[in-house]
């Protein structure tokens, strides 16, 4: 099976930091596969996701996303890769507060022609695609509510719809359920998993709640694959 993500010997250190944040000899994620990523706070999970998305630039190693090496790639091309192939969901405040639910969902189609075309392959209008996603995520009635008036759970589902529109090959979710209570966590995860399967997207899902890991193909502990020595230990 083709690799969605292929990380080899990637080292990353924040500018001004005394030690490496990440040093990962190998991490591979196959296309369409669900991966559960966990690790203590501050262990570099979000940083790793940033590297995968090309938002944070790496200088060393191999960081292949869908077969393209992001290392040494021009920033604008990285941005294009991300827009075309990756959907992001964050812990909270995912939405642009002054845009409508519809505009928020359609944003990826504005920044990526590929996502737009893939969305239009499903339905004749982008709005139609967005509405279909809204209804599958049980958000039919929210279309005309200002995003700031939505509940946190609703906001996360709108963010999921945005990450999924135009069927990106990779969906990256950084603790998307941490702000939800337990019932809603599993409800949200069910919907997300269902949609990723539907879209055949590889899902990288970060969470502290290891109970959720059962529904994933793989479970990876970041500290176990990261050989960077935390600064406390070197002292």
């Amino acid at each position: 099976m083709a690799l969605a993500i292929d990380i080899q010997n990637v080292r990353f250190r924040y500018a001004g930091a005394a030690a490496d944040c990440l040093d990962i000899p190998l991490l591979q994620v196959e296309a369409g596969v669900r991966t559960f990523l966990y690790g203590p706070s501050g262990s570099g999970k979000s940083t790793l996701l940033g590297l995968m998305g090309g938002v944070i630039q790496v200088q060393q190693g191999t960081l292949n996303i869908l077969g393209k090496n992001l290392v040494q790639m021009r920033p604008a091309i990285c941005d294009r890769m991300r827009a075309d192939h990756i959907g992001f969901i964050f812990q909270q405040f995912n939405l642009i507060p002054y845009l409508s639910v519809m505009d928020n969902i359609l944003l990826p189609c504005r920044f990526s022609l590929r996502r737009q075309q893939r969305a239009l392959a499903e339905s004749s209008t982008l709005e139609g695609v967005a509405r279909r996603l809204l209804s599958r995520l049980q958000l039919e009635k929210t279309e005309h509510i200002p995003v700031t008036k939505l509940s946190v759970g609703q906001q996360q589902r709108v963010a999921a719809a945005r990450a999924l529109i135009g069927k990106p090959e990779i969906v990256i979710a950084d603790e998307p359920t941490s702000a939800l209570d337990a019932d809603r966590q599993s409800a949200f995860l069910d919907l997300l998993l269902q949609e990723c399967t539907e879209a055949n997207a590889a899902l990288i899902f970060v969470s502290h709640n290891r109970q959720l890991a059962a529904q994933f193909h793989h479970e990876i502990s970041l500290p176990s694959i990261n050989i960077a020595v935390p600064i406390e230990n070197t002292l």
């Binding site: 604008a76 941005d79 294009r80 991300r82 827009a83 075309d84 964050f90 920044f111 945005r162």
Partner: peptide, 16 residues
């Protein structure tokens, strides 16, 4: 800042 980060994640270039 938050807004900018979201736009970046969605694919906005720094130039955007």
């Amino acid at each position: 800042r938050r807004e900018m980060a979201i736009l970046r994640a969605i694919g906005a270039r720094r130039r955007d």
